[in-house]
Design a protein around this nucleic acid. Structure first.
Lengths: 219, 219
DNA sequence: CAATGTGAAAGCCTTCACAGCG
DNA sequence: CGCTGTGAAGGCTTTCACATTG
């Protein structure tokens, strides 16, 4: 009874982002052996309304029991299936600089169903060094590796000036999804999934909030 | 004519996020000595419409010249002022593990007007080690440091299980803005500015896109 | 003439409110 | 009785279209 695969179009982007937050919260609740939860309580924990939670979930199926709420372990499974993290996925890292090294060793990063398959860099100074369980390979081998292994995901942790041509290369090699850490928007075919993480942008947003919260009416 | 400080309430959150993207793009254009740009072209570069760009900017003042567009260097100054990154700011890092170390050495991170003032950790194994120019200080000294120096921003790069009480501590000590890397939502007084960066969430969003893009009508 | 700034219209997302169900 | 699932209402954001400007 996994089914309920319906049309994924027309689902609000913000709703999909909240799904990840629900999952994170519910995984915490499982640790505490919590069996069921109402939409209202789950919402409160994250700063949303109960109606928001219910609406988000019903985009994908009917997972709750009237009068009871949602079964926590069941909802966790459903959310993993919806988000696609129920199957393990291989991922390659390109860029073995400071940030790349941190990503490899950051234990929280690759926990949820992601396996690091290889690490690449174009700098001769780091090629051959080991990072965790991986030896850094020359960037020239990316194409061969991707086509041989069929890996579909790549983390790009290279300088902003290098990332656009590199992204085009990995897409040509067969990569279908990119998590980009360079502070630059990638322009790629729309069939490629791209998520960007720019730490400078996050800091700016923080400082903006800091400057104007005092003037804001929100108590 | 810098003025034009108007009411910051009632400005859409998405608009403020786009401001950071405009700034990033314009900083790139300055490198290329680009003098002026139209809302339409700036929008195209980032995947937005010209109308969107103009509406976002007019929330904060009138920065363009009809028939010409926007002066790139002037708009950069204005955006920095609006976002609050025109003045240098000190920031402390708490958590000297893998992620914390990467944040310190990630050159792109602290470039835009941010100065790392100190690094703290509670683990005796890392206290006293040097990270970049900084010696890791014991977490017990956070309160004294914050009150003496008046630093207002903190990066939290500690495990999820430790972050909530730590956040409460730094807020009590005087910190007003937090960039949280732990995969946990912080519940703090609403006067505190909090931005969260959860890498696992970003990966989930990527995998979701990967699974369903093919079914989507978007060409 | 080209491009801004801006009311008005359209579209999207969230919240409401309640029928229905276990 | 409590809580889900869901049309309808409401509110917020984006897009349109054009008067205005140097």
């Amino acid at each position: 009874m996994a089914g309920a695969d319906r049309d994924r179009s027309g689902i609000p982007d913000p709703a999909v982002r909240r799904l990840s937050l629900y999952l994170r919260e519910l995984e915490g609740l499982i640790e505490e052996d919590r069996r069921t939860i109402s939409s209202r309580e789950l919402g409160m924990l994250l700063g949303f309304t109960g109606a928001q939670v219910r609406k988000d979930l019903t985009h994908f199926g009917q997972f709750g029991q009237p009068g009871v709420g949602y079964q926590v372990p069941d909802l966790v499974s459903q959310l993993r299936r919806i988000l696609g993290t129920d199957k393990r996925r291989r991922i390659i890292l390109i860029g073995a600089g400071n940030l790349g090294r941190a990503l490899v060793s950051y234990s929280g990063f690759l926990r949820k169903g992601f396996d690091l398959a290889a690490v690449f860099d174009r700098d001769v100074a780091v090629i051959g060094l080991t990072m965790g369980e991986h030896m850094v390979r020359p960037a020239t081998e990316i194409e061969e590796f991707v086509s041989k292994t069929g890996v579909r995901l790549a983390l790009l942790a290279v300088p902003a000036g290098e990332v656009q041509p590199l992204a085009e290369r990995v897409v040509a090699a067969g990569i279908e999804g990119i998590l980009n850490f360079a502070p630059k928007r990638l322009r790629l075919d729309s069939s490629v999934a791209v998520v960007g993480v720019d730490l400078a942008v996050q800091l700016e947003q923080l400082v903006y909030q800091l400057n104007w919260e005092q003037a804001s009416p929100r108590g």
